[in-house]
């Protein structure tokens, strides 16, 4: 009975630090998924672009277009109005990171599709000799533009959150950087998975790059948490929730153990063996991907509002 009457009774809502729920609980799980697939898709596409792996680029494009966008779409309260957020350079576009993100993602989807087609045609000698220079030029232009918009697609998710002044744990310029670097590390892990299926991937080079990405990630996450704990009492409370509160299991097991420690250990082991073990590689890919899910879960879960009553001075 108390729960049913709750919305009309006096309560202590927002007096203590209160966690956001719209983007992580109930239907908010869709946002979590969309955020994860943004990072995975962006990372895989960019890494594949750098390594010139067509299948990796295709997989990255699919992750963005067929996983990230639908999760965002179905989260909306009025999904069929989604087009209202896309037109660029409107008044909303000047300040809203979601509007910008919708535009970046849409442009990426279009440009990357053209790039995938031109690269495929060139790789399989399906272009008439006279058209090759033109198609080659188009392919390079699309690679540069699609890569740029892929980066924007990955980074805007961080800016969406870091813009929120009300949630001090998110309100830092480090967040977009953490998301991008973690996304690139995710991409390095996923390209190994792609390479196991399609071949044509230099596993040794990827392992070396992966080691550095994971070490940088570990340093970045540590810096982020230390920085947040100095920022304000509410942000410090978020950090405490992360390392020993309600998100501790997801953080220690998901982010630290599976997301960083296991892939890094496997990667370091590869220094001492000449032959790569596919089993270990698959384990590293799965472990790293779970880490990507855990990272976004943790960040969203400990998004805690500054209490609104100024007379609770400690926050």
């Amino acid at each position: 009975m108390q729960a049913r009457r709750q919305w009309i009774t006096t309560h202590e809502w927002m007096v203590q630090p209160t966690a956001q729920t719209e983007w992580i609980e109930g239907q908010g799980i869709l946002i979590w998924m969309a955020e994860v697939f943004s990072a995975l898709g962006m990372g895989l596409y960019l890494v594949s672009l750098f390594l010139n792996n067509w299948w990796g680029m295709l997989a990255g494009w699919f992750i963005i277009v067929l996983l990230k966008l639908p999760f965002h779409f179905f989260y909306l309260g009025r999904p069929w109005r989604f087009w209202r957020a896309i037109p660029p350079f409107t008044n909303a576009w000047k300040t809203s990171w979601i509007a910008r993100g919708m535009f970046f993602t849409s442009v990426f989807a279009g440009l990357a599709m053209i790039q995938l087609i031109t690269t495929y045609l060139l790789d399989h000698n399906m272009v008439a000799e006279s058209l090759v220079p033109g198609v080659l030029l188009l392919d390079w232009a699309m690679r540069i533009l699609a890569g740029f918009f892929a980066l924007l697609t990955g980074i805007y998710c961080g800016f969406v959150m870091s813009y929120c002044k009300a949630i001090p744990f998110w309100n830092t310029g480090l967040l977009p950087i953490v998301f991008v670097i973690m996304g690139l590390a995710d991409g390095l892990a996923l390209i190994m998975g792609v390479g196991l299926i399609t071949g044509g991937v230099d596993f040794h080079a990827i392992e070396v790059a992966s080691q550095w990405a994971l070490i940088i990630n570990a340093i970045l996450i540590t810096t982020y948490l230390i920085n947040a704990s100095y920022q304000s009492a509410t942000a410090e409370y978020s950090v405490m929730q992360l390392i020993m509160g309600k998100a501790a299991k997801a953080f220690w097991i998901g982010v630290i153990l599976l997301g960083i420690a296991v892939p890094l250990t496997i990667s370091l082991l590869s220094i001492f063996v000449l032959e790569f073990s596919p089993v270990l590689m698959i384990l590293a890919v799965i472990s790293h991907t779970i880490g990507a899910f855990a990272l976004k879960y943790c960040v969203l879960k400990v998004g805690i509002y500054r209490p609104i009553i100024s007379r609770v001075p400690v926050y």
Binding site: W13, M14, T18, Q20, E22, W23, Q27, Y75, L76, G77, R78, P79, R81, F82, R84, A85, S96, I98, V160, Y163, C164, K165, A166, I167, G303, Y305, R306, I308
Partner: peptide, 22 residues
């Protein structure tokens, strides 16, 4: 009529005075 229900405003309001009508 223009709202798409993304709930970004609900998240961004420091006072939590917006409600998504589910």
């Amino acid at each position: 009529d223009k709202c798409i229900g993304c709930r970004y405003c609900v998240i961004a309001c420091p006072y939590q005075n917006r409600t998504f009508l589910s």
